[in-house]
Amino acid sequence: MKEISIHFTVNGKKVSLNVPSRKRLLDVLREDLGLTGTKEGCDVGECGACTVVMNGRAVHSCLVLAAQADGAEILTVEGLAQNGELYPLQKNFLEYGAVQCGFCIPGMLMSSYALIQENPHPGEEEIKEAIAGNLCRCTGYKQIIQAVEATVKR
């Protein structure tokens, strides 16, 4: 099996490991690092459940080879809360009822996080665009959009 050694930062921690070169970032996060908050939903970059933030941008971790993340800074849903304190987006997702089954939520949070990092005051259309690549079957997106709006207003 062809292996490759990668070094990257995940949720602020430096990580080095050898992985088969065919592994995707998603597989390494879930299987090798036990970060199962990132979900697998379609494997073709359509559902967005596997979204993580890589070097400041939202990406599908199912469409990035782990080897391609060498040297990158990765943020997953597990890295959003700091010192036991929820990130404001997370608080608002709770407060606005944005969560139902919750399977799409990690990806939704990461897409919203990347948006806010880049554009601290997005309008409704920009929020919709930012999460258009994250499918949700439960919520109809409305309370998710409200939660992001509430976060950027404060």
Binding site: G45, T51, A58, V59, H60, V64, S111, G133, N134
Partner: peptide
């Protein structure tokens, strides 16, 4: 094109 995630890559 695609979604934000796609356009980022």
């Amino acid at each position: 094109i695609g979604s934000v995630q796609i356009r980022n890559r």
